[in-house]
């Protein structure tokens, strides 16, 4: 591998940064290109991702273009993580990593995203919709908290893409819940989740991306 992978991303959205964390962890060179929201749903970007969303990548080393953060992460691991630093090559852990990755992309991301919309942007305020999605967010934190009891990481005894995939949305939880009684008591209500999140936040790759994201905004 020699040429940097091009990552099409966004400044605030958490999903492209999720891909960047994996690239950092694996020391893969990449260029992070910020795509203007207005340009996502029209050509030429639509030729890269027909869904008009970020992240997407093009990898000049293999010639592939890919979109959907989960599919991109699986590609990066398959292609560049030959030593299985961020995953497992053996059973059953290999599949448990996928299981938590799919839970993140289908169970955490979409619902946290809806919570952001109804908590922060939608006018007028729709209390029942806010409640629906903050309840859902808390339910997800609860599932993670319970499962992480007595564990440092989700699968096996090391940090994998399963853990890392949650971190960019989890970073936003205090902001999403701002004003909610739970916002200041996350450590109390979800102690295992909070300790795990802090553990991930201390990783150099995660710290760097958190900083890059802040700088981009």
């Amino acid at each position: 591998m020699s040429k940097p992978i091009i990552v099409y991303g966004h400044d605030t959205g958490p999903n492209p940064w999720k891909v960047a964390i994996v690239l950092e962890e694996l020391n893969i060179p990449y260029d992070y290109k910020i795509v203007d929201m207005a340009d996502m749903k029209k050509p030429p970007f639509e030729a890269i991702n027909p869904n008009g969303r970020v992240p997407a990548i093009t990898d000049p080393n293999t010639g592939i273009t890919l979109w959907e953060s989960g599919a991109i992460i699986e590609y990066l691991i398959d292609t560049y993580d030959k030593e299985s630093v961020l995953t497992f090559s053996h059973f059953p852990e290999k599949y448990h990593v996928k299981q938590w990755l799919f839970f993140q992309v289908s169970g955490q991301g979409p619902y946290f995203g809806q919570a952001v919309w109804f908590q922060k942007f939608h006018e007028p305020v729709v209390p029942s919709a806010q409640e629906r999605y903050t309840d859902h967010l808390k339910r997800v934190l609860g599932v993670l908290d319970k499962y992480l009891d007595g564990k440092e990481y989700l699968v096996g005894n090391k940090c994998t893409i399963a853990d890392l995939s949650f971190v960019t949305w989890d970073m936003m939880v205090p902001w999403i819940l701002e004003g909610d009684t739970d916002a200041s008591q996350l450590e109390k209500h979800y102690p295992n989740w909070a300790a795990w999140h802090q553990r991930l936040m201390q990783r150099p790759a995660v710290l760097k991306i958190a900083q890059d994201k802040q700088n981009a905004v």
């Binding site: 869904n51 592939i64 890919l66 979109w67 959907e68 953060s69 989960g70 599919a71 699986e74 590609y75 398959d78 799919f102 992309v105 289908s106 991301g109 979409p110 619902y111 809806q114």
Partner: peptide, 27 residues
């Protein structure tokens, strides 16, 4: 087969359903 272009493109659409169509149509 793993590693082919079609393998990764299948993954694109699989994740598109699981993260996009399913949750949004569910809402």
């Amino acid at each position: 087969p793993k590693g082919t272009r079609e393998y990764y493109e299948t993954n694109n659409w699989l994740f598109f359903l699981n993260a996009g169509v399913g949750p949004m149509q569910g809402q």
